[in-house]
């Protein structure tokens, strides 16, 4: 069953730039997909449309049964609660502790404290940060902050995890750790993962489905793709 369907999707910004043109995509439940492409290829726009930070100008983007194009601003939270998002710049709340950052998303759902605590501890345990629950984000390294961000993204058991260049700010060793964590989540709980990245090594090593965007157009969709094939481009 398809978790994501992109049908004849166009995105043109107000300044006239077309970031995505006639894109068609299907992503099944449980897949691990890399989205690659040069800067300005439209991969960020695609990712942003998936969590409805951007709205397609034309066509359909359906995520978990919700047509993103028709979703009103005031209802966006309904989509976002079904997915987890991991950002390049982590986007943690600086005044909240690690525990509070992860618990925050559940609290705004009105969940009981007795339900929240085990979920948060489980999520932090799965990224190996159980001992740091009382730290504030600025007391953590970049890799640790990204792990908090992942814990926050998976705490509500989302069907889909969207990662927008999660390793962009991290060194190769830490990047590998982060991708291993994502891979583990994918295999263990069957969470679909879409990851936009520039990291050749990771893409080549993981041997997952690779979607290549060029100038907003789908250039290649390879089930066992690698970065090497595109290096000449």
């Amino acid at each position: 069953m398809n978790l994501i369907e992109v049908v004849n999707c166009y995105k043109t910004y107000n300044n006239g730039v077309t970031a995505v043109a006639d894109l068609n995509l299907e992503i099944e439940k449980g897949e691990f997909v890399f989205v690659i492409g040069a800067s300005g290829s439209g991969k960020s726009t695609l990712i942003k449309m998936l969590y409805r930070e951007e709205r397609p100008s034309k066509g359909k983007v359906i995520v978990g049964g919700i047509n993103v194009a028709k979703l009103r601003n005031s209802k966006v939270y309904k989509l976002r609660r079904k997915l987890g998002i991991v950002f390049q710049d982590f986007k943690l709340l600086p005044k909240l502790t690690v525990y509070e950052n992860v618990a925050f998303a559940l609290e705004s759902l009105g969940m009981k404290e007795t339900e929240i605590r085990p979920k948060v501890l489980k999520a932090l345990d799965s990224v190996g940060l159980k001992e740091k629950i009382r730290s504030f984000p600025n007391q953590l390294s970049g890799g640790e902050q990204q792990r908090v961000c992942i814990a926050r993204a998976i705490v509500n058991d989302p069907k889909l995890l969207i990662c927008d260049e999660p390793t962009g700010n991290l060194d190769p060793k830490i990047s590998k750790e982060i991708v291993d964590i994502l891979d583990k989540i994918n295999k263990k709980s069957g969470t679909t993962i879409i990851m936009a990245t520039h990291d050749k090594e990771i893409v080549n090593k993981m041997k997952k489905r690779v979607i290549l965007l060029e100038n907003g157009v789908l250039a290649e969709d390879n089930m066992k793709g690698s970065y090497k094939a595109h290096e000449s481009n």
Binding site: Y51, E53, S74, V76, Y77, K78, L79, R80, R81, I85, F87, K91, L92, L93, F104, A105, S108, L109, G110, R152, N156
Partner: peptide
């Protein structure tokens, strides 16, 4: 960030 992690406007 609150918006991104799915907090409703009221919360």
């Amino acid at each position: 960030i609150m918006r991104l992690v799915g907090a409703s406007n009221i919360s």
